[in-house]
């Protein structure tokens, strides 16, 4: 295994760890006030701050992950991100309009947009990889 591959693997693991840590702290900050500490305000603020700090660490890990990619890998991810960002803005605003004009019966929650971003990124990555590799 080459030095680059080893470094990439290590960085992928770090990114995965920070991502799971962010998801876990998000779950704690979401459900903790109701099910664990009975709406204690200080604990809720601490849980949100911990989640925010984990999110920042996840972003830093993601930046490092990008910086150790080679130029083709970076191109594949950048193209996927560009499409995902564009679609997230356009589809997100259209979805919000549907909610505001009461054309849909449910609320346009942020969770839908996050899910849409994740799925779009995965699909565009898959398509871009098959184009170049």
């Amino acid at each position: 295994m080459t030095f680059i591959m080893t470094t990439q693997k290590q960085q992928t693991i770090k990114l995965a760890v920070w991502t799971w840590s962010w998801v876990a702290t998000l779950a704690i900050a979401t459900f903790g006030p109701r099910f664990i500490w009975d709406d204690h305000q200080l604990l809720t603020v601490l849980a949100i701050l911990t989640n925010l700090a984990n999110g920042v660490m996840m972003i830093i890990a993601n930046r490092k992950y990008f910086n150790i990619m080679d130029e083709l890998q970076r191109k594949i991810h950048l193209e996927s991100l560009a499409i995902t960002l564009g679609l997230a803005v356009v589809v997100g605003l259209s979805f919000s309009l549907l909610d505001q004009t009461n054309l849909i019966t449910f609320d346009a929650e942020i969770g839908f947009l996050v899910g849409f971003i994740g799925i779009t990124y995965l699909i565009t990555l898959f398509i871009n990889r098959s184009r170049y590799l």
């Binding site: 680059i4 083709l72 184009r131 590799l133």
Partner: peptide, 19 residues
């Protein structure tokens, strides 16, 4: 790939004229 510090897939894509 190892000599020029990129992935094997990148060398393959260059050889095939895809990148």
């Amino acid at each position: 790939a190892q000599a020029v510090e990129v992935s094997r897939q990148t060398i393959n894509a260059i050889e095939k004229g895809k990148f």
